[in-house]
Nucleic acid binder design. Structure first.
Lengths: 193, 193
DNA sequence: AAATAGAACATAAAACAAATATGTTCGAAC
DNA sequence: GTTCGAACATATTTGTTTTATGTTCTATTT
């Protein structure tokens, strides 16, 4: 834990809390400034504009998410376990990191260019993460080697399709149980051997 | 082809055309009436209200979609081919049937109770269709028998996740090629045997 | 009865203006 | 390098009026 002596980092932390509670649109520069015990004009010494503050918050949360996922994946031995760790960790922390979640999902943020950038970055990173696991599995002769690019894309897309009905309707323990069954399909298919 | 002598059916056809072009909100009762060469008050002899007209249009398109899918699925022999036929036919006709597509996807229709009903019905029917194919495959000793309910749910959800990026980014011939590869995974998995 | 529509009605949407809130800039002070 | 009061331009909200639209009523026609 590095001590925060730099003003900028502190402001980002404070903004993160406000954005988490009220969202990007409903949080005002003035509120952030007051919470940081500053005049709002002072914020412009550290940030170009409001978007810039939100961008930094999102960057911060993105890094936290990436690190959590990397840790969880690295901890596992088999590529099968790595894929499972990726999915579970992603679902768990995405829900906690309110701002990056909003940046990725909320319709009303779609128009902002920097949000689109964040989404694209996140998408590419997720694809890359899965691709790396698949490649490793292939190198270890555990997975067969079809179209890795397409398979990664499919896993991520399918995950997004499952995400919404899953998180809404289903309690967490049952969720892991279901995930195991679906991974069983991903790994071994549904055709009798 | 039954000759349309009944006024109600004709009105529904006309409304279908207008709703397809302008959507539910932007189509007025007056426009429908004029297109049918009637005063708008006369429409209320056949329909309770505007929603009621749209509901009939959606019902009509739903039946078309269901029939197309049933035909395509029944035509195939193996359960593998049936699943593929289901997915392709669904994607193809859903795009053509503008109103049911809007009813299922458009955010601005979410609040209407009758739209929610239509979505739920569609969802259940899709799940049932896939479940029937899976059950048949299991009965024929082609598929293994895990959690059929969950598997159907997963196939439909994953499909919805794939649908959007797929239809946007990818040309149709490549799409069928990709689908084949993904079905290969669904059937046989990615783990080396 | 069944079908039609003109007119009236209530409500929703659009248009407009005034008031307020908010993001951003500037210049001065520390 | 930091801070901020004040000013500014613009976005948002609010209240009001007008218009458009969905629906009902009643009378007339078939």
């Amino acid at each position: 834990m590095p001590e925060k002596t730099n003003r900028k980092g502190i402001i980002v932390d404070i903004a993160q809390g406000l954005f988490s509670r009220f969202g990007f649109l409903k949080t005002t520069i003035d509120e952030i400034a007051k919470a940081a015990r500053m005049g709002k004009a002072s914020l412009y010494h550290y940030f170009r504009n409001k978007e810039d503050i939100f961008r930094e918050v999102i960057n911060k949360e993105s890094k936290v998410l990436s690190n959590k996922i990397r840790e969880a994946v690295d901890k596992e031995e088999t590529p099968q376990e790595k894929i499972k760790a990726f999915i579970i960790t992603r679902m768990k922390y995405l829900k906690e990191l309110v701002n990056i979640y909003a940046a990725l999902k909320d319709e009303y943020l779609t128009h902002y260019a920097f949000i689109e950038k964040a989404r694209e970055n996140n998408y590419k990173e997720e694809i890359e993460t899965v691709k790396a696991i698949l490649d490793e599995g292939i190198a270890k002769k555990i997975f067969i080697a079809p179209d890795v690019e397409l398979t990664s894309f499919a896993i991520i897309s399918a995950l997004k399709g499952l995400e919404y009905p899953w998180t809404i309707k289903i309690p967490v323990p049952e969720l892991e149980d279901n995930l195991n069954k679906l991974l069983e399909i991903l790994f071994n298919g549904i055709v009798k051997k």
